[in-house]
Lab assay of single mutants.
Amino acid sequence: MNLTVNGKPSTVDGAESLNVTELLSALKVAQAEYVTVELNGEVLEREAFDATTVKDGDAVEFLY
């Protein structure tokens, strides 16, 4: 899956889609429990991480 992460191209191997929690784990995001996630310009509530799917071509920003 090809994404733009914090403005840079990134690839997650072996996945066509992941939820936000899985993406944080796959990318080994440090202190993931404290990060705010913006997906395609929309800031996500932490409670929505498990239910929100990240797909090929999406833009993700991790805000600390």
Results as ranks from 00 to 15, higher is better:
1 M>W: 05
10 S>W: 15
38 E>T: 15
58 D>Q: 00
5 V>H: 03
22 E>C: 08
49 F>I: 01
62 F>P: 04
7 G>W: 03
35 V>A: 05
25 S>T: 12
13 D>Q: 14
34 Y>E: 08
1 M>Q: 02
63 L>K: 14
28 K>H: 13
8 K>P: 02
29 V>P: 05
12 V>A: 03
26 A>C: 11
52 T>G: 01
49 F>Q: 02
24 L>Q: 01
45 E>M: 11
5 V>A: 04
17 S>H: 10
33 E>F: 09
62 F>R: 00
45 E>K: 11
10 S>Y: 15
42 E>S: 11
25 S>L: 14
57 G>N: 06
38 E>G: 07
63 L>Q: 12
59 A>D: 09
42 E>I: 15
42 E>K: 13
23 L>I: 05
31 Q>I: 11
36 T>P: 02
63 L>D: 08
17 S>T: 13
47 E>A: 11
14 G>F: 13
3 L>Y: 02
5 V>L: 07
14 G>K: 08
20 V>D: 01
41 G>I: 04
59 A>L: 11
33 E>V: 08
54 V>W: 01
19 N>F: 06
52 T>F: 06
10 S>F: 15
24 L>S: 02
64 Y>G: 08
34 Y>K: 09
14 G>A: 09
20 V>S: 03
48 A>M: 13
58 D>W: 02
27 L>I: 05
13 D>W: 15
30 A>S: 12
62 F>L: 13
61 E>R: 15
39 L>Y: 04
12 V>D: 03
22 E>S: 08
5 V>K: 00
38 E>K: 15
63 L>E: 10
9 P>F: 08
59 A>N: 12
26 A>T: 09
34 Y>Q: 10
49 F>R: 00
38 E>F: 15
62 F>K: 02
32 A>Q: 11
26 A>N: 06
27 L>C: 07
59 A>H: 14
1 M>D: 01
18 L>C: 09
52 T>K: 05
50 D>L: 08
10 S>Q: 15
27 L>M: 07
44 L>V: 15
63 L>N: 12
64 Y>R: 05
45 E>R: 09
7 G>M: 03
30 A>I: 12
19 N>G: 03
45 E>N: 12
44 L>R: 00
33 E>A: 12
17 S>D: 06
25 S>A: 14
9 P>K: 07
44 L>C: 06
39 L>P: 00
15 A>N: 08
11 T>Q: 11
61 E>N: 15
11 T>Y: 15
49 F>E: 00
49 F>S: 03
16 E>K: 13
32 A>N: 09
59 A>C: 13
22 E>Q: 13
20 V>I: 13
61 E>C: 12
61 E>I: 13
49 F>P: 01
33 E>Q: 11
12 V>E: 00
41 G>M: 03
60 V>F: 09
24 L>G: 00
31 Q>A: 12
16 E>P: 11
43 V>Y: 08
50 D>H: 08
63 L>S: 15
27 L>V: 03
46 R>K: 08
16 E>Q: 14
48 A>D: 11
34 Y>H: 12
18 L>T: 04
26 A>V: 12
33 E>M: 09
4 T>V: 12
1 M>H: 04
49 F>M: 05
56 D>T: 09
57 G>T: 05
54 V>G: 01
6 N>Y: 01
19 N>E: 02
45 E>P: 12
21 T>G: 06
31 Q>D: 14
22 E>M: 08
21 T>I: 07
43 V>A: 08
